[in-house]
Amino acid sequence: MKRLFKIIIEIIIIYIIYLCGNLLNTVIKPIINMPGSLIGMIILLSLLFTGLLKLEMVEATGNFLLKYMGFFFIPLTVGIIETYVVIKNDFIIVLLILFISCIIVMFVTCKTTDYLMSIMKGKVTND
């Protein structure tokens, strides 16, 4: 019972932060349209950094949802059957382009980060 109560509190905290993010989004929209969820992420991070919120106060729900994160994307992926008509004639080509580009982007980003990390590490040991 106590555990259930804790989970409910956690969900409420997370949801309030998310709503605050959405609210802030409408304020800063003219400057940059940053999604409310990402602003919420920054809010939660700041709360944790300043110690206003302890990790234990959101951890149980957070761990559970993160474990099954992929699940929550299913309806969007299924939605492709309805929306693909917009690019019906080019669908296969676009799919191919997105596939190749995704591999390139992931590879380039990984390799560059890896490389820069090894350079910086080398610098530290040389000093």
Partner: peptide
Amino acid sequence: YSTYNKGGVVITSILGPLVVILAIPMYRNR
């Protein structure tokens, strides 16, 4: 799809809070 999505939107609506939660692993590895 619109019929399926009656249930689908409920699941999709968790995506926003989920992105908020990504702050947790970020904080742990700060």
